[in-house]
Design a protein around this nucleic acid. Structure first.
Lengths: 168, 168
DNA sequence: CCGATTTAGTCGCGTGATACAACTAACAAA
DNA sequence: TTTGTTAGTTGTATCACGCGACTAAATCGG
C-alpha cells in the first residue's frame, strides 16, 4: 500500500510544472466556480455557495475544507452571526487572473450572444483586458510567440528530460 | 430520461458565466495539461501525450476526441507518417493565457524552489508577465479592484437574478 | 522479406469521485 | 414554542477514472 505511483484523485505527481501544482489545488470540479462566487459575488457562507451553485453539499464541504487547508480560504466567525464564514486569503484572491482568463476565452469562443458577465475596474467602471506581456519589447505576446525554458525550480530528477527546451 | 437537471459530468448548466463555459471544455482532469504539452512542448501524437503525462490511454482518447469535437484541436495526417497527429486550432491556442495564469499562480504560491518552467517571448527571450489591465486608466488592476456587471449575453431567465450587480 | 517493436487505440473490471436524498444538531425567527 | 434556516454528515447509487490486457496496423532491424 506504499504506492505513490497512483495517478488518482487530484494529484499530478510526475509533472514538473506550476500549472499542474495549481490544478492540484483548484482543478477539481466546482473549485474555480466556488472561488469565482467568493471573489465576485461576495458569497461567504456555506448554504449560499450551495444554493447559488446547485452543487452537492458534501462535495462543497470537502472543497471548502481543502481550500482552508491549502491556505486560499480561511474560516472565520463574523460579528453578527454564530455561523462561520469562508473568506478568501491573499493567496486565494490571487486566483482572479485565472478566472479572468477562463472568462475571456469563454467570452470569445463560447458566447454567441456576447459576454454574460463583464469584468470592470471598479475605480472607473471600464471593462478590463488581460494580456501576456513582454516587458522588454513592451509588446502583447500572442500564443504562438510564447516559448519555455527551465527555471531554478526545475531540478534534475529522472523526469527532468521530458521537456525539450534550451536554457535560453 | 429527458432529465436536464442532472449535475453530472463536465457540465455546469445553471451557470450564466463564460468561465463555466470554458471549464466545460477544458475543466476535466488532464485536459489543460494535454493542451500545455501541445502548446509548449510540441507534442502532437497520441502515444507521446500518453507517455509524457503518464495518463490512462482510454481517458486520453476520450479527451482528444472531445477536443476535436469542441474545435480546439484538429486531427490531421502528416506527410511523413501514416499515423494521425493532433494539432491545436486558433481556438485551442487561445487557451494559452489560462495556462500562463495557472503557471504564474503556481510559481508565486506553490513553488518554494522557484519557477520550474519560465515562459518567454520567443523574439527576445525575455520572461513574460501577465496583467489584468484597465485600458482607460492605463493601470494594472489587482484582484480586489475588480468588479462585475451584466453583459449582453446575460439574458433574463430565472437564474439571472443570482448576481447582485448593477448595470454600470 | 520477416520477426520484433511501436503506435493508436479498445475493452473489461475495479475503485475513487461525485450526486442526491435523508438525517441531525445548533441557531434564529415568529 | 413552533417553525424554519444553517451547516453540515451519512448512506447509497451512479459516474468518471485508473489499470492491465488485448488488437490491428504501421514501422524498424536484419
Amino acid at each position: 500500500m506504499l504506492s505513490s505511483g497512483g495517478m488518482l484523485g487530484n494529484r499530478y505527481e510526475r509533472e514538473i510544472c506550476s500549472a499542474a501544482r495549481s490544478l492540484e489545488v483548484v482543478g477539481e470540479r466546482w473549485s474555480l466556480l466556488i472561488i469565482r462566487d467568493a471573489l465576485f459575488a461576495g458569497v461567504s457562507r456555506f448554504s449560499d455557495f450551495a444554493r447559488r451553485l446547485g452543487m452537492a453539499r458534501n462535495i462543497l464541504a470537502a472543497r471548502l475544507e481543502s481550500f482552508v487547508e491549502a491556505g486560499i480560504m480561511e474560516r472565520r466567525s463574523s460579528d453578527d452571526s454564530a455561523y462561520d464564514q469562508y473568506f478568501l486569503t491573499d493567496k486565494g484572491r490571487d486566483l482572479a487572473p485565472i478566472i479572468v482568463a477562463l472568462t475571456k476565452w469563454g467570452d470569445k469562443w463560447q458566447a454567441p450572444n456576447g459576454p454574460p458577465i463583464i469584468y470592470r475596474h471598479v475605480a472607473c467602471g471600464t471593462e478590463v483586458e488581460q494580456y501576456v506581456q513582454c516587458p522588454r519589447c513592451n509588446y502583447n505576446v500572442k500564443p504562438d510567440e510564447l516559448g519555455v525554458t527551465r527555471g531554478p525550480g526545475f531540478g534534475s530528477g529522472p523526469l527532468a528530460n521530458r521537456w525539450a527546451l534550451g536554457r535560453h
